[in-house]
């Protein structure tokens, strides 16, 4: 029985009212998340192109849901349970021991995507079933860079586990390397990245942990009521406007990332969603490094990072 059959069987046994899983798009090999009813189980697919994190979708569904989750997805689900956004008893998690996912944009460089019928991982190669024939690409060349630093390829929370558990490793070598650059080099690097940002806020919108209804960087509408006077409205606090320039974008990204300290699950959705390909995960991973090395916090702890009242330094 192959992986996909196992997933379908597990989903069928779940008695859930809804299923959140990947479905293949028609025009390209991309897989998108869909909410399905139990009798649509046969539509689902799973491959190294199942990129997205379903945790955010779960938050808008009531009732019992079955979900297909990779390692990082399960991390996000666990974090949301920890923060009271999801209920464990409402979830049936089909965990998949993940070998890493493909970076869709890298893949597009190797092959004309409209010709790809199917994608599967075979050993160290990614096998693309094309309309005419087959093509093998070394998986390391198309793998999402984020997966190389994955600490949790095996789900941390699941009802059914598919595949052999795998060991993850924590690796901050690239961050350390970047830290060795001079201050000016670092600033120039980040400014050159951030000036590209168009502030579409996709990084914020796709992040499973960015669930606030009103974001810090939005023009604040805290308590606008019919009685608010124009003066009152004009004087509401505003952290950032909508202006787009390298400096404002820097502030936006620093703020966004700060809210993920000790929470970021490392799914890489922010980078995947970014149309301008900013290296956002680098900031998140830097913060993870601080949290781990300076505060000695472990993401597996039951207490959220900010609730811990230890003080470090003087």
């Amino acid at each position: 029985m192959n992986e996909i059959e196992k997933i379908k069987d597990a989903l069928k046994s779940s008695n859930a009212e809804k299923i959140v899983a990947f479905v293949r798009k028609e025009s390209e090999p991309r897989e998108v998340l869909k909410v399905l009813s139990p009798n649509e189980v046969d539509k689902i697919s799973f491959s190294p192109l199942s990129l997205n994190n379903p945790a955010k979708l779960l938050m808008q569904i009531n009732g019992k849901v079955a979900v297909v989750a990779k390692g990082c997805d399960s991390m996000a689900i666990r974090q949301l349970i920890k923060e009271g956004k999801l209920k464990r008893e409402n979830l049936f998690i089909v965990g998949i021991s993940c070998k890493g996912v493909v970076d869709y944009r890298k893949l597009a460089k190797f092959v004309n995507l409209s010709e790809v019928n199917d994608v599967e991982l075979n050993g160290n190669d990614l096998v693309l079933k094309l309309k005419n024939g087959e093509k093998r690409i070394p998986f390391l060349e198309v793998v999402d860079e984020n997966c190389l630093y994955c600490g949790h390829p095996t789900p941390v929370i699941y009802d059914v586990l598919i595949g052999e558990p795998r060991e993850g490793k924590r690796d901050f070598s690239d961050i350390e390397q970047f830290e060795r650059l001079s201050r000016e080099e670092r600033w120039n690097y980040w400014i050159s990245q951030f000036e590209r940002c168009i502030r579409c806020h996709a990084c914020r919108s796709v992040c499973p942990l960015c669930y606030c209804e009103e974001c810090m960087v939005d023009p604040s509408n805290l308590a606008v009521s019919p009685m608010s006077t124009p003066e009152e409205k004009a004087s509401y606090p505003r952290i950032l406007g909508k202006t787009v320039n390298a400096r404002d974008n820097t502030i936006y990204h620093l703020l966004r990332v700060l809210h993920h300290a000790g929470r970021c699950v490392g799914c890489g959705e922010c980078e995947r969603a970014c149309p301008m390909e900013l290296p956002l995960r680098m900031l998140e991973r830097k913060l993870e490094k601080v949290v781990v090395e300076i505060f000695g916090y472990d993401l597996n702890e039951d207490i959220p990072f900010f609730s811990k009242l230890d003080i470090v330094g003087d």
């Binding site: 970047f178 000016e184 600033w187 700060l258 300290a261 601080v290 949290v291 900010f306 003080i311 470090v312």
Partner: peptide, 18 residues
Amino acid sequence: YYAKKRYLLLKELMKFVG
């Protein structure tokens, strides 16, 4: 204690971006 935590995180991040 919260202040210190936030301060350290922000400071480290600022250092990181130069």
